[in-house]
């Protein structure tokens, strides 16, 4: 195989694609639909992850202080906490402040708290994390350090929802992997079946090529290219359809607010993932064609 043969092989592939235009078009549409399902799921996963990232950025750690801690000890504790690597800011919330805030949250029902002479709520430090540590892991790490400090009774950072969210994300990824794997196989199946028909339709041409001394790669490459064209067009069409759906979702239906995932709304696949979808189309097209060729050769033998 020589490089200067590529234009001829590419032309032959395009001619082949045109010669069986309807069959190839149907295959492209089916491939595109498979990629739309896969790409749609990918879109869902990245947006949920993105939203989770956004929520994690708002993570705040609250360290509740032991009752009866002296003002001096409290100040010392504050300085130590402020010196921890994860910490950006520390705000002291006294027992009275906590009660006042609680009253505020209760609103009209604040009368329930009438009669309290002393705040039953503990004093606390509300700790904001540095940007690079604003994640479930960062919060977990800081919580661990805080629990080791004397004078701190309890630490909370919304562990439960973080864990639930992580579990949900893992579930989504697993479902994504299963769906993705199934779709990859189905795309290979579609390409290999349409290419099997092409191989059959080209049997005479293949015989003539063998007659004039064409190598196996010279005979196989146009078919591989044809499969790659199918995969490429299917992937591009799916990206177009996904983008149209995304535009409709975000601009026409104003569902951003309903979705309310995070400020900035829903985002489309980043270009790297778009390129990966196109690459997958090309690769699966090539694999499908090679399988069809392999099958045809084993029948001949």
């Amino acid at each position: 195989m020589r490089l200067r043969q590529l234009p001829y092989l590419g032309r032959t592939a395009l001619e082949g694609f045109r010669a069986h235009a309807l069959m190839n078009l149907i295959a492209v549409i089916i491939i595109a639909l498979a990629f739309v399902v896969g790409g749609g799921f990918l879109l869902l996963v990245i947006n949920v992850e993105w939203a989770a990232e956004g929520w994690s950025e708002q993570i705040q750690v609250t360290a509740y202080l032991a009752d009866g801690l002296s003002a001096e000890a409290t100040q010392g504790l504050r300085s130590r906490i402020a010196g921890l690597p994860e910490v950006a800011q520390v705000r002291y919330v006294s027992k009275d402040d906590a009660l006042k805030a609680f009253r505020g949250q209760l609103g009209p029902r604040a009368s329930l708290l009438q009669g309290l002479t002393e705040s039953p709520l503990p004093a606390s430090f509300e700790i904001a994390l540095r940007p690079m540590h604003r994640s479930a892991d960062g919060a977990e790490r800081l919580a661990g350090r805080l629990r080791d400090l004397q004078g701190i009774e309890e630490v909370s950072y919304g562990q439960d929802w973080v864990r639930r969210l992580q579990g949900f994300l893992e579930f989504l990824r697993l479902v994504g992997a299963v769906i993705g794997g199934g779709l990859l196989l189905s795309v290979i199946f579609i390409v290999s079946n349409t290419m099997a028909l092409t191989v059959l339709a080209r049997r005479e041409e293949t015989e003539i090529l063998q007659l004039v001394g064409a190598t196996r790669s010279f005979i196989a490459l146009p078919l591989v290219f044809e499969g790659m064209i199918q995969g490429l067009l299917g992937a591009l069409l799916s990206l177009g359809l996904l983008y149209a759906a995304y535009e409709l979702f975000t601009t026409q239906l104003y569902l951003q607010a309903v979705a309310g995932l995070r400020p900035g709304g829903i985002r489309f696949l980043p270009w790297q993932l778009g390129a990966a979808v196109v690459g997958a189309g090309l690769l699966l097209g090539a694999i499908g064609s090679l399988l069809a060729l392999g099958r045809a050769e084993s029948v001949e033998r």
Binding site: Y8, L209, V212, F218
Partner: peptide, 8 residues
């Protein structure tokens, strides 16, 4: 030309 194309 096909017989020559295959030879590159």
């Amino acid at each position: 030309a096909l017989a020559l194309e295959v030879m590159g």
